[in-house]
Design a protein around this nucleic acid. Structure first.
Lengths: 260, 260
DNA sequence: CGCCGAATTGACACGGTTCAATTGAGGTGG
DNA sequence: CCACCTCAATTGAACCGTGTCAATTCGGCG
């Protein structure tokens, strides 16, 4: 009997768990070079934010005209089968687009919900600037990169679900989180917040909750990670990458700085 | 012992199996309304085609600058794990984009190979016209729809792999093929060509070849489909949709004509 | 006629699910 | 400040969907 429960506990280190508005700018600007004016526009996005409670829907097709971007928190897109089985299609982290506005004609039968308390910002100005004729080349490239990354994550997820064991899937998903949450602070400590329920992990990885628990226990016993209070600490990155067959995502031919 | 082998046989009904160049135009134009000039441009695409042998790579990142579009045949995007496990990420059918040019900054560690003999056409003119300032609004919308559909198929695949049983996955995938290959002829007969090996289906659905075989046998025994010589004939569409929890893909808020 | 890739089938093993019970942490009301 | 409630995590035991191994058959082709 472990004395520490694994994932979500209120006593979690909030300083690690909470992303600031500055995180949004630094994450997006790490994807491609932006002009000073463009950077300014990015940081102005956080002027009009909105807070969503956990477990609430943060986007639906009726709001397709209202593009938003994640500022902080965790969300996901999910679909239910008729008998109640749930599949999480992808996770939405700070800096990601909320909803389908990167591909505005898609209306998949899926809902987008907050997994934690979530802050989103209106991305209308971002889109307008990128599409405008006044030469915000960096921003339009940024949007393309965001869409490409989202697709790459879908590809990764398909390979995980199709051909990896429970153990490999779990390790691979954690490596993806690690790369997506990449910050200077995280590089130093190899810690990141993962405020997910084991049930949520199960519905993402196509496993049962019970087996997710057993898999996490085994990962800890094997010395890959420490997990407590919603914080993941990578212990043996090399082994994890070997176990999960990790391949860095490449953007533009070269490995993206933030996605090693 | 069945007297008829199930999938790929040379004696297959070639008239059903082979798509004509006209198919490309009719399929794409069914996605959204195009001007006469735009339709003309589409049919001119097939002037510069290229034939690829089965099992050969038909696109790679070195050719990112050469966008191509499927005219006939079947192809797929796939990834290998280090120990040889293969996962097929998506199938590429006539009318689909070959490679990543809809999202040009993505370089996933995947290869795109022909599953049958394949004919592709240069899509450079299509892109140029859609991006040009001379108002080919229909074409640029067409490209957006193509990208959205591709994403919707990825979402479907994730749900299949994550939360459906082998039987449900197989039925669901066949329904997707049915909808994607939708033609006037097919509506009448409910037949379509599926020139895939059971091993290919296995690597798509995350199953073993043996289990794919058993699943197909069961589907036939249950009276869902007839499968012979690479031709699938839908017997009980209603039951299939119920089994697979089929949800039509919607474009633009309303169910797309070709994707019911 | 004999070879080869694909399909088919049986027997058995195993990864992961299901069912059910227990523990732990945090929140709430008296 | 404690009894109680609830949700999440944890663990054991039995079960089963699917994988693995191996043998056989089928169809196409040289």
């Amino acid at each position: 009997v472990s004395a520490i429960s694994f994932l979500t506990r209120k006593s979690a280190d909030v300083s690690i768990a909470r992303a600031s508005a500055g995180t949004l700018v630094s994450r997006l600007s790490s994807l491609c070079k932006l002009s000073a004016e463009e950077l300014d526009l990015l940081s102005n996005l956080t002027r009009s934010t909105r807070t969503h409670l956990a477990r609430t829907e943060i986007w639906n097709t009726d709001e397709a005209s209202r593009p938003r971007i994640m500022v902080s928190g965790w969300a996901c897109r999910q679909r239910f089968l008729g008998d109640g089985r749930r599949q999480i299609i992808n996770f939405i982290l700070p800096g990601d687009a909320v909803g389908d506005w990167l591909q505005p004609d898609l209306h998949t039968d899926a809902s987008t919900i907050a997994l934690t308390e979530v802050i989103t910002a209106d991305a209308g100005a971002l889109i307008a600037a990128a599409q405008g004729a006044c030469g915000h080349e960096g921003l339009s490239r940024l949007l393309r990169l965001m869409a490409s990354l989202e697709t790459a994550f879908l590809h990764n997820h398909i390979v995980r679900l199709g051909r990896q064991t429970a153990y490999e899937r779990m390790v691979h998903l954690m490596l993806e989180f690690h790369s997506r949450l990449h910050t200077p602070q995280m590089v130093a400590t190899d810690k990141f917040a993962m405020p997910l329920t084991q049930e949520t992990l199960a519905d993402s990885l196509g496993l049962s909750m019970v087996h997710v628990n057993r898999t996490l226990m085994q990962m800890r016993r094997d010395g890959l990670v420490q997990i407590a209070f919603g914080i993941v600490k990578i212990i043996d990155m090399k082994l994890m990458r070997a176990v999960a067959d990790w391949v860095p995502i490449k953007l533009d031919g070269k490995s993206a700085a933030a996605y090693r």
